[in-house]
Amino acid sequence: MRIGIVGAGAVGGFLAGHLARAGTEVALLARGPHLAALRDRGLTVESRGERWTVTVPASDRAADLGVVDAVVVTAKAPALPAIAAAIAPMLGPDTPVVCAMNGIPWWYHHGRPGTESRTVDRLDPDGAIWRGIGPARAIGCVIDCPAQVVEPGLVRHVAPRPGALTLGEPTGGRSDRVERLAAVMEAAGVRAPVVGDIRAATWSKLFVNISRSPLGVLTGLSERGMAADPDTLEITVAIMREAQAVARAHGIEVDIDEARTRDPQNRSEHRSSMLQDWDLGRPMEIDGIVRAVQDFAREAGVATPTLDVVSTLLVAKARQAGTYSG
Rank of each mutant, 00 (worst) to 15 (best):
G92E: 13
V67S: 01
A238Y: 05
L38T: 08
H110Y: 15
G173F: 14
Q320Y: 13
A138R: 06
D308Q: 10
G173E: 15
Q294Y: 00
R156S: 07
G42I: 12
F296W: 05
T55H: 14
V73P: 05
G9S: 04
V302F: 11
A30Y: 02
A70E: 10
V208T: 10
G103Y: 12
I239E: 04
G13A: 09
P152L: 11
G92R: 09
G216E: 06
G32N: 05
G216L: 03
S204Q: 15
G92F: 13
D277L: 11
P57N: 04
W52S: 00
G127I: 00
R122Y: 02
I239Q: 04
G92Q: 08
V310H: 04
R156M: 03
A136H: 12
R48S: 04
N266G: 15
A182C: 10
A245M: 09
G281T: 11
A58H: 04
E223G: 02
W52L: 01
I252P: 04
G163W: 10
R282W: 15
D263I: 00
G13Y: 06
G114Q: 10
G140E: 07
G7R: 02
Q265Y: 00
T202K: 07
A138W: 08
A247G: 15
S47L: 00
E269S: 11
A63L: 13
V194Q: 13
I235F: 05
D197Y: 13
G103D: 09
T236E: 13
T261M: 12
A159P: 09
G9C: 02
A136N: 07
V72S: 02
L154S: 08
D279R: 14
Y108F: 15
D124H: 10
T115M: 10
R51A: 09
V150A: 12
R137D: 03
T95Y: 13
A245V: 10
D279N: 10
A238R: 10
Y108G: 01
A183C: 05
W106D: 02
G127F: 00
V142R: 04
D94R: 14
R31T: 04
A86D: 14
T202Q: 15
V155W: 08
T55N: 11
A192F: 08
V310W: 06
R122H: 06
L154N: 06
V26M: 00
D64V: 10
V56C: 07
R61L: 11
L154P: 07
R122F: 05
E258F: 14
V194E: 12
A300I: 12
A86V: 02
E242I: 03
R241D: 08
M90N: 07
Q265F: 01
M1F: 06
T95L: 09
A297W: 09
L38P: 05
V97L: 08
V302N: 07
S59C: 02
E179M: 11
S175E: 08
E285M: 12
V26R: 03
